[in-house]
């Protein structure tokens, strides 16, 4: 039971932060299928900087976790500029732009990882070894039955994510910026009439989504995979999109969706372990989060409503 909660949380929270990024972008009216690419590219930049710093300074890579986290956010943000420019300045189709960015991210990072490994480290490898970040337990909370597991063996990034998520919630729902952002996705003309530059609001929303996705990608790289390689493109970004649509483009219901994913995933593998089934049966349990989501959606998606101006190119002259 404890492992279900521990593993579930460490999967759900990075997913959640990527989904929050997606909510920001989509609430502002920019469809964002590029989350997958953002998180991968962010993780690439983070991993690259960690490996490079470790190489020059001699500090172990596993201790450079926070540095990597910082750089991954910067990397994700830099890469998201492409999406923002394409969608806002060049008025490209937002779905097309998103798909293209995913393909480009995978191609670029795979190519650069191999190339840099040869040029800088002189070895033929398609990955950057990172190791798993340290974990810690909050002793006095961990003793509470059941809930205590949530405070056992936590990755430091889980705390960071919770803090950032709280701030993101505040920014989106309680601040002037958040109000304008949400209005830009519902009725951009009214935002314009109020004297606010719609393009700027949307641009910053996409940058935020890149930043948060980069963070999420790095967390996956430092926990589940323990390295950076093209296997980071496992579909976490798409899963996050599914979660945010499931959560009806709202932050708290999205958290619930992510937790369902996380616990269904860890729960599935725990059941397979307990029942001592052969390893191929774990595949069947791995479908649990996805089937569950589909079933839940059948009951809950009637009332789902996307932001009204989502995917529309903002045209000042249009009425």
């Amino acid at each position: 039971m404890d492992t279900v909660i521990i593993d579930g949380l460490s999967f759900a929270l990075p997913l959640f932060i990527i989904a929050i990024g997606g909510i920001y972008s989509e609430k502002s009216g920019i469809t964002n299928l590029a989350l997958e690419g953002f998180q991968g590219f962010g993780a690439f930049v983070g991993a690259l900087s960690a490996v490079l710093i470790a190489h020059t300074s001699g500090i172990g890579v596993e201790h450079l976790f926070y540095v990597a986290l910082l750089f991954s956010m910067i990397g994700g943000m830099m890469f998201s500029i492409i999406h923002a420019v394409l969608c806002i300045k060049f008025k490209a189709d937002q779905v097309i732009s998103g798909v293209v960015i995913n393909i480009l991210a995978l191609a670029l990072t795979t190519f650069l990882t191999a190339q840099i490994n040869v040029l800088v480290f002189g070895q033929a490898s398609d990955r950057f070894q990172l190791g798993v970040s340290d974990r810690f337990t909050i002793e006095f909370l961990a003793n509470i039955p059941v809930i205590g597991a949530a405070f056992t063996n936590i990755y430091p990034f889980e705390i960071i994510i919770v803090i950032i998520a709280c701030f993101a919630w505040y920014l989106l729902y309680k601040s002037k910026f958040g109000m304008r952002l949400r209005a830009a996705g519902e009725n951009p003309h009214s935002v314009d009439a109020a004297g606010v530059d719609v393009s700027k609001v949307r641009f910053s929303a996409v940058l935020i989504s890149g930043l948060l996705s980069g963070l999420g990608g790095m967390c996956f790289a430092y926990s589940i995979s323990a390295n950076f390689s093209s296997s980071i493109y496992m579909g976490y970004g798409f899963l996050a999109i599914a979660a945010l649509i499931f959560g009806n483009w709202k932050i708290l219901p999205t958290l619930v969706a992510c937790l369902i994913f996380g616990f269904a995933k860890s729960g599935g593998s725990a059941i397979a372990m307990v029942m001592e089934l052969p390893s191929s049966f774990t595949d069947l349990f791995m479908t649990l989060p996805y089937v569950l989501t589909l079933l839940l959606l059948i009951f809950f998606s009637k009332s789902n409503r996307a932001p009204r101006a989502l995917g529309e190119i903002y045209d000042k002259g249009k009425r």
């Binding site: 999109i241 649509i245 069947l284 791995m286």
Partner: peptide, 30 residues
Amino acid sequence: LKYRFNINEVVSTIMLNYTAQYIISFFIQM
């Protein structure tokens, strides 16, 4: 699913992708 339950096709296709991948992997390996 899209027509009857208003399930966004992006989500349902992604979910079906994963489900198919794991179930078929199970049958192949068995």
